[in-house]
Design a protein around this nucleic acid. Sequence first.
DNA 1: CTTGGCACTCGAGACGAACGAGTGCCAAGA
DNA 2: TCTTGGCACTCGTTCGTCTCGAGTGCCAAG
Lengths: 338, 338
Amino acid sequence: MVEDRKLAVLRAIVEDYVATQEPVGSKALVERHQLGVSPATVRNDMAALEDEGLIAQPHTSAGRVPTDKGYRLFVDRLSQVKPLSAAERRAIATLLEGAIDLDDVVQRSVRLLAQLTRQVAIVQYPTLSRSTVRHVELVTLTSTRVLLVLILSTGRVEQRVVELPDALDEASIGDVRARLNRAVVGERLGDAAEQLAALPDEVAPEQRAQLSVLVASLVEAMSDHRSDERVVVGGTANLARFGEGFDASIKPMLEALEEHVILLKLLGEASSTLTVRIGHEVPYSNLSTTSVVATGYGPGDEALATLGIVGPTRMDYPGTMATVRAVARYVSKILDEG
Amino acid sequence: MVEDRKLAVLRAIVEDYVATQEPVGSKALVERHQLGVSPATVRNDMAALEDEGLIAQPHTSAGRVPTDKGYRLFVDRLSQVKPLSAAERRAIATLLEGAIDLDDVVQRSVRLLAQLTRQVAIVQYPTLSRSTVRHVELVTLTSTRVLLVLILSTGRVEQRVVELPDALDEASIGDVRARLNRAVVGERLGDAAEQLAALPDEVAPEQRAQLSVLVASLVEAMSDHRSDERVVVGGTANLARFGEGFDASIKPMLEALEEHVILLKLLGEASSTLTVRIGHEVPYSNLSTTSVVATGYGPGDEALATLGIVGPTRMDYPGTMATVRAVARYVSKILDEG
DNA sequence: CTTGGCACTCGAGACGAACGAGTGCCAAGA
DNA sequence: TCTTGGCACTCGTTCGTCTCGAGTGCCAAG
């Protein structure tokens, strides 16, 4: 079938180009792959592929390079996900199992992703909105200042120093603490705010003002999406490896890595399926020579957050996709157990 | 005085080179600075400076470039610290005053430093070792698991999940909590461990094992220097600006920025005086074309931690030094108030 | 000690030729 | 209709040569 061979040629071009980083010509192609046809035939196919916008030549007398559209087709239809080696699996498992808390899990995941894919890795912290409240703690600092600590089921801890309008003795603190906990423990963050709303009305008028302040601060801590949006980046040193030709992209890349908002946009909506964005599909126009491979993760099958990698469009998609998926699964498992 | 003019020439060379990033010749020098002598004279001086190892020429027919030693002399004796503009001071003050907690202070400081100096900024978290314990909290998770929360005077919170050998009811938890707090609140981290050592012996034998586990975990949390070593980096996008010629250094630079251990070494010992390390003086051989400007900071006059910037040896030392110092002072002030 | 003059060095940039990888097209063969 | 070998053509890369000029070092005179 002619169509089949054309696709085989496209696959070969993508693979060679990714490996050598140089435009690939018809002759080199038949030498390196068993296509069973002559260079001339390949050239005809190439011309057709070029008409379809799947490949392009940088200049007239050069080999071909896949376009974004070409990569897209390759990813969607031509590549099967490479299974990881046993050694890699073991490495992932042992490294992640050594983690001692949430922070550490996230840290280790980034490192792992960066090392295995040799790209820049991004991991978003598990989002708060679906997690539940485990405990609220009040700690007296001075007579009119308390530290409010909010502990969540994900292991995340939020803290606020609250300035009270009036002094509050230990007994009252205990009472308030109990009330707060009764109201919100076990609740999802979204629902907890409602539970808190009625609370000030239940207590004696002289405590009401105090409690209101605390409730306000607590609600604020719960709805604070600062931590939702926390992302960790690793493997920036791999940027240097991209090297020549990618030089122009390194600046926007570094800029993007500093802006967590942009990173979150790159990662996209948490979804449990693996997403690949190629070149212009990346939602940030300065990164049009860049691709993103990301996937959601989280305990159970819920995708609480997203992790992934960013690299040049010219990357090893099958390998990268396999690694990203594997890491996401292991992290999810760890979170499940924790 | 001839010596004086030689130094003026050195200063002029440093300033011009920093501004233009190109080797500076004798003619350009007399044109741009009012030295009141002819190029030939300057050439003689340059030859002398070169003999002293303060400047060098990249190749025979090129202008001069300061050596590390030249920069050293410039920093030590030729530059007066530039006062910041009123606008800059205001910017620092307002930005930092908006901070809501320790994390935020650190975050904002990095941004600020990076923006003002247009270099890569590094801020170390205020170290634990000198801080004191404000409160220890125990939260029951399941019957044999408790969450141990350690709150420090700096506002830092450490947490550990502790697996108990046996179930512990709420009353006992309360008792243990009280004992722990009595033992360590107000103590410095270093001393607190000793206070805890004797604790298990004071309680009934059946609680002893439980308490030992908790104490061990607490001691571990206090001595955990992971958080001591936490550093935050910002302004990496400025690396791109260094651009041409600095290309070779960008890789080791990125590598260093990923290794917090290395960054800590770069920042050096916390000391309240401003430290400048130039080129080979930087304790990391791959960064020999790089300089570090750092200073300690912290509430009062104690230098709890260090912050600073890293950039090419060819940088505006007076301006950078002024900015680093100013930011450190403001941050210290904020910490003082918090 | 300073200065103008002068010969010298050497990198940067321009120019051009040779090279060769790669192409498109065509005519012949299966 | 598809495949293939042949062939002319394109064009970026490489390499050597040349020129230009910024900058130097040295010297002799002021």
